[in-house]
Design a protein around this nucleic acid. Structure first.
Lengths: 251, 251
DNA sequence: CGAACATTTGAAGCGCGTCAAAGCCGGTGG
DNA sequence: CCACCGGCTTTGACGCGCTTCAAATGTTCG
C-alpha cells in the first residue's frame, strides 16, 4: 500500500521499516457514501486510504458539487491538516473504504529524520498540485469526451501504479453522477458521451468493469498526456505493463 | 515583498534577516508576454516575482491554453523545481516582470534551519494547492459571471495582502483574452459578461482600473468565499481594510 | 500616421443542460 | 420465489449559455 512512496524515492529496507512502524495504527472503516471529514471541519490528521476509493470534493452554497480529486488505495490527502485550521473541502467515501488517520506529528518526525522519506512526501505533494492543475485544464479546455477520456486515462495509470489495474481493464466503482461531478458535466451528458465512446470503440464499460482496448487511441482522442503524474523516471526505473508503453510516449 | 511569508507565520527579526540574506540575488527582467520558463523544460530554480504579474499556464497539443494561476509580487512558484524533472506548465509574464531565481538548495537549507520559515513555506504550498482546487471548482461548477466574479475577488484579496490594492479598486493588467484563458471562456463571452457586470453595478472597469464598489455584493453574486486562501487567522491578526470585512464573513 | 493589438457588436449554431419519464437492476422482505 | 423498492442508467424533447465567425471600433505606441 505504501509502495506509493517507493514510487517516488527508492527506499532502503530500514526506511520501509520505519514507515511500517509508523503505520501501526488502527484501520478505520467508512461505508460507501459516508464522509470521512467535511468541509469546514478542523482537520485532525492525514488520511491514508488502505482499500476502496474516496474522493475530495467542494460544495458551493447552493449545493453544486465538484469532485476535485480521487483518492485510491495508498493515497494520502495533503497535509492541510498539519498547518491549516479548516478543511476547505470534504473527503467522502465512494465505495466502502478502509483507512487510517496518521497523526501529523508522526509524519513530520519521520520526514525530518529520514530525508529520503521526506523527499518522497514532497514528491507526492508536488504531484498532487500538478494533478490539480491538470484537472483545471481539463475542465477549462476540454470537451465532454476529452474530459472523460482524460479522467479514465489518469485513473488507469494511477491504479496500475498500485497494482490494481492489470492488462487493459480495471474496476471502476464510480457512478455516472460521480463522473459528472468530477468533469463538470451533467450525468445525462456523461451517459450520452460514454455511449459515444463505446460505439467508437474507445472503451467498453459494463457493470463496474472498464476496458480500454487501445490505450494510445484513447489518449489521443482525449489529448491526454501523462507528464503531470510525474511517474518518476529519475532513476531509470519504469514499469513494463502494456499500458505504460503508450502512456510514456512523451518521455 | 516577502511579507507574503510573514502572512503565514510571524517571523522574528533574525528570521527576516536570513530571508533577506537569501534574497541577495540578481533581479532579472522579462518583458510582457515573454515566458520565464516553458512547459517541458528542466526546471532550474524557484521563481520569485518582485514586481509585475506572471501567470502559470498549460498548453494542449492543439494550442488551446489554460491559465491555471496568477503570480503576483511576492509570490513564488511551487518547488516543482527542487524535485521534479520537467516543467508540466509554463510561466509567462503578463506585464513586464522583475523576478529572482532562488536556488533550490538555498531554500531547503533555510527551511531546515529555521522551522518557522519552513512552516511558512509549507503554508504557502498548501494554499497553492487549495487555490488550485478552487479554480477547478470554479471551472467545473460556475457560470461565466460567477467565474469572472470569483477571479476578481481572489485577485482583490491577494493584491491587498501585499499592499497593492487599497480602497475598493486595483490595477488589473489582464486583457480580456487573459481572463478568457483563465476562466475557460472565449474572449467574446468574457466581454459580454463584463458588460453585464458593469451594468448591474458589480464592477466598473475602464482602462486597467478595476473598481468593486460593493465587495460583498460581488462575492454573493459569484458565490465566492475566501476560505480557500487561508489568510491566516491562527494568531488573531486580521487586516483592517474595508475589503476584508466582508470577505471574512464566513470566519 | 499607421500597424498591431484590444474591445465591442451582431448573427447564427452547437454543445451541453434541463426536465421528465421509462427501463433496469440488485437488494430486501414476505 | 416473487413483489416491491430505491438507486442507477438510458432515452427523448426542448431550450439556453456559450462558441464561432466576422467585421467594426477603439487604443497604444513606434
Amino acid at each position: 500500500m505504501v509502495r506509493r512512496l517507493g514510487n517516488y524515492s527508492r527506499l532502503a529496507s530500514d526506511e520501509e521499516a520505519v514507515i511500517r512502524q509508523m503505520l501501526m495504527l488502527p484501520v478505520r472503516f467508512a461505508p460507501a457514501r459516508r464522509d470521512l471529514i467535511a468541509q469546514g471541519a478542523p482537520p485532525r490528521a492525514v488520511f491514508l486510504i488502505v482499500s476502496g476509493w474516496a474522493c475530495q470534493f467542494k460544495t458551493l452554497e447552493d449545493g453544486r458539487r465538484q469532485i476535485v480529486g480521487f483518492m485510491l488505495p495508498g493515497d494520502t490527502c495533503d497535509m492541510n491538516n498539519l498547518v491549516l485550521t479548516r478543511m476547505d473541502h470534504s473527503i467522502g467515501a465512494v465505495t466502502d473504504v478502509r483507512y487510517m488517520e496518521v497523526p501529523g506529528e508522526a509524519l513530520q518526525r519521520v520526514a525530518m529524520n529520514y530525508p529520503r522519506i521526506g523527499r518522497a512526501f514532497w514528491w507526492q505533494m508536488l504531484v498532487s498540485i500538478s494533478t490539480q492543475r491538470e484537472w483545471t485544464t481539463n475542465l477549462g479546455q476540454r470537451n465532454a469526451l476529452e474530459r472523460l477520456g482524460s479522467l479514465l486515462c489518469e485513473l488507469a495509470l494511477r491504479l496500475q501504479a498500485v497494482g490494481l489495474a492489470g492488462g487493459e481493464s480495471y474496476d471502476l466503482p464510480l457512478t455516472q453522477t460521480d463522473l459528472a461531478d468530477a468533469t463538470g458535466l451533467t450525468s445525462v451528458h456523461v451517459n450520452r458521451t460514454l455511449q459515444q465512446m463505446r460505439t467508437s470503440g474507445l472503451i467498453s464499460l459494463s457493470g463496474r468493469v472498464l476496458r480500454i482496448p487501445n490505450f494510445a487511441m484513447l489518449e489521443e482522442a482525449s489529448l491526454f498526456t501523462a507528464d503531470y503524474l510525474h511517474t518518476g523516471q529519475r532513476d531509470g526505473r519504469r514499469g513494463k505493463d502494456p499500458f505504460e508503453a503508450s502512456a510514456s510516449s512523451i518521455w
